[in-house]
Amino acid sequence: MTDPNALPANLHPEAALLPWYVNGTLREQDQQQVARHLETCAVCRAELEELSYMRTELRRFYDAQPGPSPRTTQAVRDLLDRDTLTQGKVPSAKRHWLETVDSWFRSLLMPRWAPTLLAIVLVAQLGVLLWTLTQPVSSDQVTSRSISPPTARLRVTFQGQASATAIESLLHSVRGRIVDGPTADGMYTVEILADNESTLQKKLTELQGHSEIVQSVGRVAP
């Protein structure tokens, strides 16, 4: 009785490697050793012929054997769909539209690209903040919601032939705006930014200097 755990004593060591010489998976060193042995050993060449034939017939046999029934594929698809729903994996192309919408919303909650998007948003916000801080700020552009800027009110009558564009341009140059008017006699109330008396006088003079636009100008008593 042969020992099933040991090769026959008279078997060439290379013969035990022949099955893998046939299937082509031997390492190069073993491959060369077997090839050299085959050049001189007729017994192993005969064994190689048998193994090659056996390989061909076994491959032909297994190729012709059936695979599992279609229910196997369907069972795998069902389980995949279930996994997709519970774990938010890639959705199936053939699902109810409500399931697709559901998966889409789920994907929004845990998308893989969320950290990247978050980083981009943070960097963009930081960039905007730095750009804003580096911009020169005009003092008269700064306003406060709780403390009103220093202003003065003037009563202004414009020339009848002055255009709206010219009036607007003049008021812009003195940082002023119409806040009331016109009255029955054509007088407007104009508010201008002026943090001290000299600035106010300067702007009054500038307005008076444009007689083609301004007919009269005077201060409103505080």
Partner: peptide
């Protein structure tokens, strides 16, 4: 002969020594 696995891979798959793989294949044939 069908899956064309090297004997080392078969030993890993079956959790047996490579020498046992060679012996088993020899007697199977």
């Amino acid at each position: 002969f069908y899956e064309e696995l090297p004997y080392e891979e078969i030993a890993t798959l079956l959790s047996i020594p490579t020498s046992t793989v060679k012996t088993r294949v020899y007697y199977a044939k």
